[in-house]
Design a protein around this nucleic acid. Sequence first.
DNA 1: GATCATAGTCGTCTTCCTGACGATAAACAC
DNA 2: GTGTTTATCGTCAGGAAGACGACTATGATC
Lengths: 252, 252
Amino acid sequence: MPYDPSAFPPFAVTVDLVVLTVRRHALCALAVRRGEPPFQGRWALPGGFVRADEDLSQAAARELAEETGLCAHDPSVPVQDNGAHLEQLATYGDPKRDPRMRVVSVAHLALAPDLPAPRAGGDASNARWAPVEELLQQGGYGRDGEPVAPLAFDHAQILADGVERARSKIEYSSLATAFCPPEFTVGELRRVYEAVWGVALDPRNFHRKVTGTPGFLVPTGGTTTRQGGRPAQLFRAGGATLLNPPMLRPEV
Amino acid sequence: MPYDPSAFPPFAVTVDLVVLTVRRHALCALAVRRGEPPFQGRWALPGGFVRADEDLSQAAARELAEETGLCAHDPSVPVQDNGAHLEQLATYGDPKRDPRMRVVSVAHLALAPDLPAPRAGGDASNARWAPVEELLQQGGYGRDGEPVAPLAFDHAQILADGVERARSKIEYSSLATAFCPPEFTVGELRRVYEAVWGVALDPRNFHRKVTGTPGFLVPTGGTTTRQGGRPAQLFRAGGATLLNPPMLRPEV
DNA sequence: GATCATAGTCGTCTTCCTGACGATAAACAC
DNA sequence: GTGTTTATCGTCAGGAAGACGACTATGATC
């Protein structure tokens, strides 16, 4: 087909972000309240238009910084400081997903350590960390007894896909360390796995597994007591990105 | 940000297809020759614009049918007939990836059994199955001694990503059966794994593994001799989509 | 300070999976 | 028949993982 600008329909392209963290033993996602129609007042995933001269990953990193102050991290470098892991998730382009116009959204997944309060344009009441089960339940009631409206657009589907990606990816990669501060203990890492998978893991087998997987953890030499009990060794994330053999998610 | 049509730049959205099959013990991809600039005369992945009223997966299925006659298959249904597996791969949106204009391409991955000759608008010389190593080598020479030009646009990257997705996905899913005809033998399935991974597998251990994984293979009762030697049992793909435990790709 | 609760760390045992590989079975070519 | 090819079954050793006992090192409580 020859080049003819009228031969293709114009699309708006956005990036939407599934930003996950672990807070108080629960997997939480960043949600922002919509200020305008459609879905005014409803919670949604953060996101925005891709600019004319921007790559998709640049746009995602920019939105992430705008919403959280996080600095997106090159995936080839181990996670450190307050950098977050950022990767492309999937693209959603149903013709009716936005009632205003044809919008294709390239969703990205970000994994971050537990952060202070979120900010959305400086207005804290319009952004929050919410447990993913709370955001995904349809028409139920939240912990405060207030009715829960489903997320705007197809964001419930996007969030569910992002959560599933995170759950499966920490099996065979060292991505779980992206939820941890730069230095962490084996127990803290185990609580990340428990929160993301929603299961209880045997501390002894987990300890044997992660300390025995080459390149996963590097001891820093320090110890700490953050949870009461015996002090634990501190580790940093090792260079390995793919775990071999993988962590196994317990059956059902 | 309020709704303002001038607030976002317009994009063209395309789908590109990585269509993989196994021919003569080699992993091959479908390539089409470009008829117009840019990259006129160069090989590229098949693809085209997403229409105004089309979902992304619909557009990918339409392009697949146009190029190969394959009927894309709902992933929730086991592969059968001449249906192919089709899934979204990733989205590529570098501002400079198409010199004409801003194009975002949603790449899809299709896996198909070995097919008769491809057709591209009825012109066989403009479409072919080529071994993926041949398409991915840069500036080398093909088997016929003719110099090989790299694929157009960023299609080498897209193809490489698709191949890597296929290689990893047959580890933990039953997707390898998408490369097989409706009924196949354990040996044929093994040769699929060998071609996709580029390794040799022990026939005895492979047989034990696939016949011992629940839901992977269903015996049809028939036997056949397609490769010489003792007749082999025929199987269909079972309902299982996730293999547990997974097939393990040999180290290195 | 003794006791208790909490977490972290090291071992043991059994079971399952895998890789290596011997042996047998059933076809075809000569 | 002999040889070749492919399919299929069996055996054995090594490694990984689940279950779980035991010990260690801290803070909290009496």
